[in-house]
Amino acid sequence: MTAELQTALLLLLLLEIKHLFADFFLQTPRMLSGRGQYAHLGRAQHAGLHAVFSVCALLICGAPLVFVVILCLAELVVHYHIDWAKGVHSDKTGYTPTDPGYWRAFGIDQLLHQLTYIAMVWAWAVFTL
């Protein structure tokens, strides 16, 4: 296995670990409230937390600082909008964890975040190797 592939897998692993913590362990009540509002401080804080942890992951993997800042700002914007869209959907449908529609929306939300991480690893490979 090449060093580049090892680093790409390490980066993906670090992004997955940060996702676990930022999405499931470190959300505050402010981050969880008002998800369907567009301009929402809690959602901005949540997306910012993801971006800060991604900065750490990318720096650990040796990415250049300018690249890291640009990529993580893009992630912040994408993450914010994925969560906002899910919040709007949740507000419109009123689904709860007992509804299959809740779990479909949750799954789509998580898939979009995972695809974001794949895109980030791709960008790292294309622009830093």
Rank of each mutant, 00 (worst) to 15 (best):
M1L: 12
A3R: 07
E4A: 14
E4I: 13
T7L: 04
T7R: 05
L9I: 15
L11S: 06
L11E: 07
L14H: 08
L15A: 03
L15K: 00
L15N: 03
I17W: 05
L20F: 14
L20N: 06
F21Y: 13
A22R: 02
A22S: 15
D23T: 08
F25E: 11
T28K: 01
P29C: 12
P29L: 14
R30P: 01
M31A: 03
L32V: 00
L32Y: 00
R35Y: 05
Q37Y: 09
Q37G: 11
A39R: 12
H40P: 00
G42K: 12
R43I: 01
Q45V: 15
Q45M: 14
H46T: 02
L49V: 05
H50Q: 04
A51N: 00
A51F: 01
V52H: 01
V52L: 15
F53Y: 09
S54T: 08
V55T: 08
A57W: 02
L58R: 00
L59P: 03
L59V: 13
I60N: 09
C61H: 04
C61P: 04
C61R: 04
C61T: 06
C61Y: 02
A63E: 04
A63L: 14
F67I: 07
V69T: 11
L73N: 03
A74V: 14
E75T: 10
E75S: 13
Y80D: 07
I82L: 06
A85E: 04
G87M: 09
K92M: 14
K92A: 15
G94E: 05
G94D: 05
G94S: 08
G94R: 04
Y95D: 15
T96D: 10
G101Y: 07
Y102I: 08
W103Y: 11
R104W: 13
A105H: 05
A105Q: 08
A105C: 11
I108G: 05
I108T: 13
D109F: 04
D109H: 13
Q110V: 10
H113F: 02
H113G: 02
L115N: 04
L115C: 12
T116W: 01
T116H: 05
T116V: 07
T116S: 13
Y117H: 14
Y117Q: 06
A119F: 07
A119Q: 09
M120T: 12
V121P: 07
V121M: 03
W122D: 06
W124H: 12
V126A: 13
F127R: 10
F127S: 06
T128P: 02
